[in-house]
Amino acid sequence: MNVEYVAKLARIDLSAQEIETYQNQLGSVLEHMDAIASLNLDGIEPTAHASPVFNVLRKDEIKPSLPVEDALSNAPKKANDLILMPKIVE
């Protein structure tokens, strides 16, 4: 696993020194995964969650939303109730 690539995906700017540090740290995390991979997992179902809890759902009911002023209060720039940001083009 390449730390530089992961950092780029996560939009984190790392110095050369940090890359080296994290490469080592990430390496040991991955080694731990190898430890799991070395176990005999035959007959064990892959699971996304450890507890057998299903369907934690809500009814389709409207709850009050934030006032527009509050929703926009963290925005560095706003106009016409929109949050403004540097122009993005796909």
Partner: peptide
């Protein structure tokens, strides 16, 4: 639907921008 997928904000086309939001 009446409300959004993962919260109770109203699911409505149009409406004042940013009037149907929550954390």
């Amino acid at each position: 639907t009446a409300s959004k997928m993962f919260c109770g904000c109203k699911n409505e086309y149009g409406g004042t921008p940013n009037s149907h939001t929550c954390p």
